[in-house]
Design a protein around this nucleic acid. Sequence first.
DNA 1: GTGAAAGCGCTAACAT
DNA 2: ATGTTAGCGCTTTCAC
Lengths: 343, 343
Amino acid sequence: MAANRRPTLADVAREVGVSAKTVSRVLNEDGPASARTREQVLAAVAKLGFQPNLMARNIRVGGPDSSIGLVIPDLGNPFFGAVAGGIEDTVRDRGLTLVMGSSADDPDRERALTDKFLARRISILLVVPSVGADHSHLKAHRAAGLPVVFVDRPGAGLATDSVVSSNRAGAQDGVAHLIAHGHRRIGFVGDLPTRLYTRRERLAGYRAALQEAGLPQDRSLITNAHDQHGASAATSQLLGLEDPPTALFAGNNIVALGIVTELARSRRKDVAVVAFDDVALAEALEPALTVVAQNPEGIGRTAAATALARLDGDRSRGRTVTVPTRLIVRGSGERPAPVPQRV
Amino acid sequence: MAANRRPTLADVAREVGVSAKTVSRVLNEDGPASARTREQVLAAVAKLGFQPNLMARNIRVGGPDSSIGLVIPDLGNPFFGAVAGGIEDTVRDRGLTLVMGSSADDPDRERALTDKFLARRISILLVVPSVGADHSHLKAHRAAGLPVVFVDRPGAGLATDSVVSSNRAGAQDGVAHLIAHGHRRIGFVGDLPTRLYTRRERLAGYRAALQEAGLPQDRSLITNAHDQHGASAATSQLLGLEDPPTALFAGNNIVALGIVTELARSRRKDVAVVAFDDVALAEALEPALTVVAQNPEGIGRTAAATALARLDGDRSRGRTVTVPTRLIVRGSGERPAPVPQRV
DNA sequence: GTGAAAGCGCTAACAT
DNA sequence: ATGTTAGCGCTTTCAC
């Protein structure tokens, strides 16, 4: 009943009557081996169901493990799922295995994960850094040749590569679209915590658009939400203001869900919306949801490619690569603004 | 510059002036150690930035690696993302690291991934099996104590645990809901390939509902799609039939996106829809989308818990756990069916 | 073309 | 409370 030891190189060697090294040679197509030996070895491998122990191999070879570590905030968020997909697509040919974990945007969990990954001797580390996380402990690893790339947000305490969306410009485009359709009071519902990089950048884009149009900055129009439910609450709060906004800008995909759901619930068809990050079914809404689409697969691919280049010896200075966003006009940004009431 | 060797136990030992074993003892809280020694060791560890090599440790200890392998079809599909999240939540306390890969539902890629995972000596293997994949090669590992659990679909060639949704009953509920609202011609848009377990089960549920109601089975009402775009095409094809359906049943979340998008595009508000698996923004559609909700986190948690129980010595027979689905009525199933035309 | 010995970084088992 | 030896499964080095 079970628990028999897994076969080792030595077992295979014994079965065939050769040395362990010979088996190793055959399997790794290292040195020469007679056709007959090869055949016998392969047969024994199949018979015993031998699978080389990668850990033992790596120990001896000394190099890093053939794995790539990825820390994301939330496995269930389709944005990060798509990022992970882009990463996997890019590293698959190199034979790298994806080792993942979610931090829930908690610096301690992020640290625990990265430490685990480092103990595993991953050959690349990709991190969506949590707010408040410090990465100076990675300096030595980075210096020792471990590629470290920050994804979606820049990291703190470590000079290395980052890959981010064009958050500010994208948000500015989106808000400008609303302004172009006559809106003068535009609510902003952002991520939490407010220190979050993406929240700050997108808010900056929002402000830039208002300023460009000569519109006043009204702090009461700026709210935040941690999840979909919170975004719904923020929406109804904004719409309950004495002088409510006629349009809303969603700071991310989750917030967009909350806003759109709340507008549908309260049957507010008169409120224009533009969301940062595309969401499923955006086209099927009435009106269809106008978004500033990110390119999550592109972010993942770029981050992975950057890291692979480092692995291949690229010693240039750390850079920040910006993956462009794209305004997709679908209708929700064009709900007519009410004619301003001159007093 | 760079590429300096990572510090080892021996380096730390040398720094302090003790033996490697002593350092090991301190770090693993194994045998005793004087307070002074412990302090010095910890200081040296911090100073050198030492991180134990987990691979080397595992080699020596001999047990499996503290990782859990997961193969899913697609990292970008929120359903599987949520499943992965449930798994991670469940194994986190046990200190297991998630090693993931996507198979694209290709048996060869699935096999390549599982082989890699096995070479890594993962301590648990969770697989969403691809159509056509055979898993008899896992028998020896299973027998040797490796927990193997199939997720979302049963596997072939290996008697072990599976965790699936109540596909048949759920689909039957969903279709019965449509029938209850007067629909007699209900289109089915399922997954591809048609041999896919979930596709077959959900179709069986669909058929059972028709039969129960004494409705005819019309093969022309059964279509399939591989992706969202294909589902849109299938939708317009169904609606273009001479005697078109008045309601549609979506076989999964991706198909649902395609159906709903196509109905919105063609402004067909008169077609009722029920989808298997919930989707974001379902509530915000007009009418809101009625779904047979799955519980992906629950599936992930159940699969992980089952595997952990095996790891803890559960030697009972392999079982199939069914995670219940739940009909969430939101409106789209209640669009009135046209009054039947008596000839 | 093949094998023997040494060693990767760590810990189990037995010292002391 | 600490050190020594041996060995995990594999590959490197050097020998034949």
